[in-house]
Design a protein around this nucleic acid. Sequence first.
DNA 1: AAAATAAATGAACACTGTTTAAAATAAAAA
DNA 2: TTTTTATTTTAAACAGTGTTCATTTATTTT
Lengths: 207, 207
Amino acid sequence: MGIAERKERDKEELRERILIAAKTLFLEKGVEKTSIRNIADLIEYSPGSIYHYFKDKNEIFHSLHQGGFQQLMSRMEVLAKVSNPMERLKRMGAIYVDFALENPDMYDLMFIKEAPMDHVYNSNDEQWKEGFGTFNFLRATIQECIQAGHFRGHEEEALSFLVWSTVHGMVSLHIRRRCEVVLAQRQDTIVKDGLSEFFTILDRLSL
Amino acid sequence: MGIAERKERDKEELRERILIAAKTLFLEKGVEKTSIRNIADLIEYSPGSIYHYFKDKNEIFHSLHQGGFQQLMSRMEVLAKVSNPMERLKRMGAIYVDFALENPDMYDLMFIKEAPMDHVYNSNDEQWKEGFGTFNFLRATIQECIQAGHFRGHEEEALSFLVWSTVHGMVSLHIRRRCEVVLAQRQDTIVKDGLSEFFTILDRLSL
DNA sequence: AAAATAAATGAACACTGTTTAAAATAAAAA
DNA sequence: TTTTTATTTTAAACAGTGTTCATTTATTTT
């Protein structure tokens, strides 16, 4: 009965090759400008054959996007060892920004892109609950900060939203290229610089 | 000599009709999914004729994009009367958020939607840079705040980017409905609440 | 009325995502 | 081994895209 299993493995392998090719091209020239024919060319198969492994182009995005939340969550795991909540909060922000800058297309799919990904957020997708978990982790950390005497006068939920918004705002303006004209001469460092300004503010709020 | 002028007016009128049709469709189904043929159908002209009034699709987007900035800029004009820079900064944030919440589609077009036109951001279009006058106004205001003794230890440009990012982050997460799952019970107020948390932080940084 | 000018058109080109009937290949059964 | 069955891959086709351009249509000038 090893033949059926080998066939299954072969099929899974080609599926994986499609995903790798798609990811390569998405990162190289963007999702919209990558065609099914481009992907097919790269793996040396016909365009039609891709539709044997994925329903459509969106399903390829979705498949890659699932991996995205898993990646982000696994990056956050090192924070379990950071006992100081303020330190944890800052390192959380750094991990979030790093992830976004290193995987802009993935981040785009996860937090910026609209319509075709709506079903992801309405479904009981396990990976989405992972993302939900990330925000709850932020809230818990901020709650700890408050209990430790920081952020006096602030409300936990709204402050958590504000913190999330701040890092999301920076990386999404960068990813959608809204700071290129306005901050042309320091495109590469502006997000990191903004983050360090944010850390300065957080430190000042701790006193 | 009134004939030439009438022709000029007619031409300008058709140009305007193209823009209105494009705006309608862009906001309705997105820039990428709106075709030149769609626009032509709506104004009951042939697709080719649109190229008599705009170099390409990018130029149509560009034109609408600028109009949005002009709108936002005109709302900011009342701030000229606010002499206290910290007060001006806060009211600027409120105007920005209000504009975004009242015109989510236009905001989407201006700051969130994928901007397919590379040449726009790479060009040294003077008029385009005018569109970003709002950001320069923010920078000037923060510069004034620093000169008045606020934001000690902060760097003006990076801080300006951070402030912009914070308000952009909140409204864009709201517009793209990323807080619905995570903050289901206070969708309607979370942006305003987040902004008020932000104001609290700004006040604390003034001391 | 004829000539010159400007505007609008529709067909064509090279792309896109996706579907599908047919062909090639591999596996199972005779 | 040969035939039948199932699967995988393909090429062609469909309907769409942005854009170009020769041709037609309408308007203005002579």
